[in-house]
Amino acid sequence: MYDAVLFDNDGVLVKPPKRELLQEAARSAFEEFDVDPAEDHLAAVTHSATPDGFREVCEAYGFDPNSFWETRDSAASEIQLREIEAGRTTTYDDIDALSSFEQPLGLVSSNQQATVEFMLDYFELARHFETYYGRPPTVEGIRRKKPNPHFLDRALADIGAETALFVGDSESDVVAADNAGLDSAFIRRPHRTEYELSVEPTYEIEGLPEIFEILD
């Protein structure tokens, strides 16, 4: 039915970082620029930053967009790596399911490329994937992250697939799949128990083994 299966990373394969940690990282970036940010500006660059929200923050404080985003992204990556090495960030219990797929697998994350590469190496997951993408630590990277289908399209091209199922845990994942012309499987992990979607995924699942039922 599908030539390949593509996965998001955080919240699908690896447990997501706590929001307060990402907020701590974002605040430290403002501190590097000697700024005590307004709460809405802090929130705008803590998680799921958008091009418009980021531009508003930079204009409000006169930041150079490239310098500020590099500082923010570096802080966010470092704090995530620290949590992984301390054993506070782990994979989900059903991660072994990756070994049983017959289709080629790819990974597309909105996390930093360096963070994704570290996770795949640390948890020994890279061997499962023919291709994987995070976003570069640049302003252009914000524009190209999901729901933009840019990296989904690149992953499909790398694998040489025309059809794929994209497994994600957020509305942006579902929209990105739709934008790329792909079917989506929304995985409702424990952190998404109360999460409401305003878009309809092709499938909804609770764990990775359920994907095999879809593929059959």
Score class of each variant (00 low, 15 high):
E59A: 11
E59H: 00
A60I: 08
Y61T: 02
G62L: 00
D64T: 10
P65Q: 03
F68Y: 01
W69L: 00
E70R: 10
T71L: 01
R72W: 00
R72C: 04
R72F: 02
D73S: 15
S74I: 00
A75K: 05
A76C: 07
S77N: 14
Q80R: 12
Q80D: 06
Q80S: 11
L81S: 10
R82Q: 12
E83H: 11
I84Y: 10
E85S: 13
A86D: 15
G87C: 11
R88E: 15
R88C: 07
T90K: 11
D94P: 14
D94C: 13
I95P: 14
D96M: 01
D96C: 03
L98P: 09
L98S: 12
F101I: 15
F101P: 13
F101L: 13
F101K: 03
F101G: 13
G106P: 09
V108N: 04
V108G: 05
S109Q: 08
S109H: 04
S110A: 14
S110T: 14
S110W: 08
S110L: 06
N111M: 02
N111L: 02
Q112N: 14
Q113C: 03
Q113W: 09
A114C: 05
A114E: 14
T115S: 15
V116H: 11
E117C: 03
D121G: 10
D121Q: 10
Y122T: 06
F123T: 07
F123L: 08
E124F: 00
E124I: 04
L125M: 09
L125K: 03
A126C: 03
A126E: 14
H128T: 08
H128M: 07
F129C: 09
F129V: 11
E130S: 11
T131C: 06
T131P: 00
Y133R: 13
R135L: 07
R135P: 04
P136T: 15
P137D: 11
T138D: 07
V139S: 06
G141A: 06
I142A: 08
R143E: 15
R144L: 15
K145L: 12
K145Y: 01
K145P: 01
K146H: 10
K146I: 09
K146A: 12
K146L: 07
N148T: 08
N148C: 15
N148R: 09
P149F: 11
F151L: 00
F151E: 01
F151H: 12
L152D: 06
L152C: 12
L152S: 08
L152Q: 04
L152M: 05
D153S: 10
R154Y: 05
L156R: 14
A157K: 13
D158I: 10
I159Q: 03
G160M: 06
A161M: 08
A161I: 13
E162C: 04
E162T: 13
A164N: 10
L165H: 05
F166E: 02
F166G: 06
V167R: 10
V167T: 03
D169S: 07
E171Q: 15
D173H: 04
D173Y: 00
A176L: 04
A177D: 05
D178W: 01
A180W: 01
A180P: 05
A180Q: 07
A180Y: 06
